[in-house]
């Protein structure tokens, strides 16, 4: 593991874990309970409403599958960025972050296509509880993708200038989390019948 520069004001680190990484882990824990609460609620409802399968069949499986692939690939590039930064290769890391950013942009583009297609076909959030859940869960997730993209863009700018190597790991952890949430949402909302 690379030696990370320590923030100036921190006098001491009591554990082996860098403070920033610890902060990110607790941040992700708080995110897990937010999505956990939403997903658990949805699963309980879905259990009682087998007829939602018919509604779910109107989601665009190919778009969902494509987005799953895009997100998984972008997770790979963020891992490559981290690998590069531990070897001190700032420009390579920046390029891989750029690919991740591109993945996020494609994901959002596909999402926009999906939403507009579904809304045009009359599947609006207020149509039924299934669609309420669908838009709430994928919408909240999309906001997280957007937030992740902003964070990655910020880190990318810093890394290109040779700053803040430790942040590549932190945005990477976050991006993995966003990816994992999607891995739950895709089967629950698109595929389950």
């Amino acid at each position: 593991m690379a030696e990370y520069p320590r923030a100036e004001h921190i006098l001491n680190e009591s554990t082996e874990v860098p403070t920033g990484r610890l902060g990110i882990w607790w941040f992700l824990a708080s995110e897990v309970v937010i999505f956990g609460g939403l997903i658990a609620t949805y699963v309980l409802f879905r259990w009682q409403h087998p007829e939602w399968a018919a509604e779910a069949s109107h989601t665009l499986n190919f778009a969902g599958a494509l987005n799953t692939m895009v997100l998984l690939t972008s997770s790979l590039t963020v891992v490559l960025a981290h690998a590069a930064i531990t070897e001190g290769k700032f420009q390579l890391a920046a390029r891989n972050l750029g690919f991740t950013l591109l993945g996020g942009a494609i994901f959002m583009g596909v999402k926009a296509y999906e939403y507009s297609h579904e809304i045009a076909a009359g599947f609006v959030p207020a149509r039924s509880l299934f669609w309420s859940f669908y838009y709430t869960m994928t919408g909240l997730h999309a906001l997280h993708v957007l937030g992740g993209m902003i964070a990655i863009a910020t880190v990318l700018v810093a890394v290109r200038k040779g700053h803040a190597p430790q942040r590549v790991e932190y945005v990477g952890l976050y991006w993995h989390f966003v990816d994992i949430v999607w891995i739950f949402l895709f089967p629950l909302l698109y595929l389950a019948s």
Binding site: W26, A29, S30, E31, V32, V33, I34, F35, G36, G37, L38, A40, T41, P125, A126, L129, S132, Y135, T136, L140
Partner: peptide, 22 residues
């Protein structure tokens, strides 16, 4: 940190009930 998440989700749903007719 571990208790507020589900309520944040719940509050989002309540806001949507009010403004988006879910």
């Amino acid at each position: 940190l571990f208790s507020v998440g589900p309520l944040i989700a719940g509050a989002v749903m309540l806001i949507l009930d009010r403004v988006a007719a879910t």
